[in-house]
Structure formats: C-alpha cells, structure tokens
Design a protein around this nucleic acid. Structure first.
Ligand SMILES: [Zn+2]
Ligand SMILES: [Zn+2]
Ligand SMILES: [Zn+2]
Ligand SMILES: [Zn+2]
Lengths: 142, 142
DNA sequence: TTGAAATTGAGATTAAATATCAATTGAATT
DNA sequence: AATTCAATTGATATTTAATCTCAATTTCAA
C-alpha cells in the first residue's frame, strides 16, 4: 500500500512522515486522473487535512523520487502528474483538439525500446512517449 | 531551402519576412545542435544581424508553426528546440547525469506506433519519445 | 525532559515566456 | 514621391509556475 511504501522511502532518506505529507499522499491517491500541482493544492485546501502550497510542491517531488508518482508531461503552463502505483505502465495519446488523453500499452513497444537502448549502449531507466493528433471523436470533425 | 519555405509560410499568413526574422532563421540553421531560446538570443546578439529577445521568441514560435523547427522537450528551465528541416525524424535519449542527448531512429518503432494509433482509432500526427537514463559514459561512473 | 534535526508556511524571489504599446517599417496604391 | 495602414519592433512590464528563505514549530530518540 502506498502509505507504507512512502514511509519506507522517507525512512531510508532520514525523513519523516508528517501529517502534511500524509495529506498530499492521500489526496494524490484519492482520484485516478492526471493532475497539476496547483489543482492538487486547491483540492487539499478544500479538504480537512491541510498543507501549504510549498509543502505540496515539496511532497510532490518526493513522491516522484519514491516512484509512486510520475510526471506525465510538461505543458506550456505547468507539469502534469499522475500516481502510478496501482496502475501499470502506459503511454499517452493526446488530442490536439479536445485535449483528451488516451492511455495505451504495448509489450512490443516496450521491448523494442529496451532493444534500442541496448544497441546504443544506453542504460534506459524510464521513458515518455506522447503521441499527438486527433482522437476518435475529433478526427471526424476536423 | 529553409528561407524559401519560411517566406512562403509567412506569405500565406499575410506576414512579412523582415530582417529580424531572417536573422533568427539564419542563426537557427547555422548549427545543428539542440538549443534553448535564451542561448539562441545571445548568439544572435553577438552576430552582426540583431534581433530583440521578444522577436527571437516570436520568430521561434513561427518557425515551429511552419514546421522548420520542432520543440524537442520542455525541461525544468526552458524549452529545447532543434531545426528539423534537413534532418530526418528521430527520437531522443537524455542522460540524467551529464544531460547529453543521443538521437536514434527505428523504422520498427515508427511502424509500431502507427499500428497502435490505428488500433486505437487515433489519428496520430506526431510524437515525442524521450528515453531517460544513463549514457554510455555515465553508466560506468554511476 | 531535552536538544538536534527536520519541517512548516507565509511571503519573497526567480526566471521563462508572453503581453503592452508607442514608434517604426514595409509595401501596395495613388 | 507621397500617402496610407497594417504589420513589426524593442524596451519594458507583467504573468506565473516553481523554488527559496527563514523564523517558528514539530518530531523523535536519547
Ligand atoms: Zn490509481
Ligand atoms: Zn511505455
Ligand atoms: Zn496516464
Ligand atoms: Zn534531435
């Protein structure tokens, strides 16, 4: 469970699991969509367990470092995150018209990337694949 | 040639090919590396044909819109661009230690993505694949 | 209980990118 | 050549996500 994992992660770094960090962790795992830091802060602000904006940003960085959360992409305006613990790895298709995000996964694609890393002598740790274009609905309109 | 393409692009939009825009275009195509807007501005500042910071940013956006330049990635600090006209499509491996960028291309990978788009009813127009990890040199150190 | 280390939050700071706007330029028309 | 007007420029101001600062507070092990 994410709480235990985060606690272990913090312990190894000599950091403490405070009520603010719990508040952020809880909020991040209370829904399963992609989110931006500012939105997350506002959700926490309106919940019963508070944390300051600074703490939200700080904790978010720790969550990424722990592996529980990943940065999906960096848009013009801000970063976009998602919790990944409890979800298997996937990549994203983003519609340039409506902005909708389609998640997909391909074993073949993952293996091919490993192969490409190997042949380039690169020790790949993670990747971000973002396909842009028009989703099923929007491609009919324009 | 890029000048002609840019001129046609501007014409279609009812815009003019000014000396400032030429200066930016020239500088962007004077080297073949990835670059950040601020660095580009400084290069232009030290060249003989000047353009203000505002014009550099504005022209950069036009160059992306024209298809001559692409945004490689958006880092914590700024956007990273590269001119793509004259270069074939490729994806990037980025070293988390030294920041070096390795370009790669795989026909298989490209086809697989097309296949994935098809099976998702997605009309893919472009993609960004960024593999992060350690380059050949850095993986030995850490 | 004590004390060192970690954490917090309010506000300041940073910096990339965009917006503002008066002055200038470009080029088509007379 | 002069007129005209939209486009463009550049200096500066503004925006805003993210980070930093630091005094006050909390945590927890000794
Ligand atoms: Zn979930
Ligand atoms: Zn993947
Ligand atoms: Zn996702
Ligand atoms: Zn490249």
């Amino acid at each position: 469970m994410e709480n235990k994992i985060f606690q272990n992660f913090l312990e190894k770094k000599g950091l403490k699991l405070t009520k603010e960090r719990i508040a952020v962790l809880k909020e991040v795992f209370s829904f399963h969509d992609h989110f931006e830091p500012e939105r997350l802060y506002l959700r926490i602000k309106n919940s019963d367990s508070k944390a300051s904006r600074a703490s939200v940003y700080r904790t978010l960085n720790l969550l990424v470092e722990s592996g529980l959360v990943e940065k999906v992409t960096r848009t013009e305006k801000s970063n976009v995150y998602e919790h990944t613990f409890g979800h298997s790895h996937h990549d994203h298709m983003i519609c340039d018209r409506c902005g909708s995000i389609t998640e997909f996964y391909s074993e073949k694609l993952e293996n091919l990337q490993k192969e490409i890393c190997r042949s380039n002598g690169f020790d790949g740790k993670s990747h971000t694949l973002e396909i842009r274009g028009y989703c099923n609905k929007c491609k009919k309109i324009k």
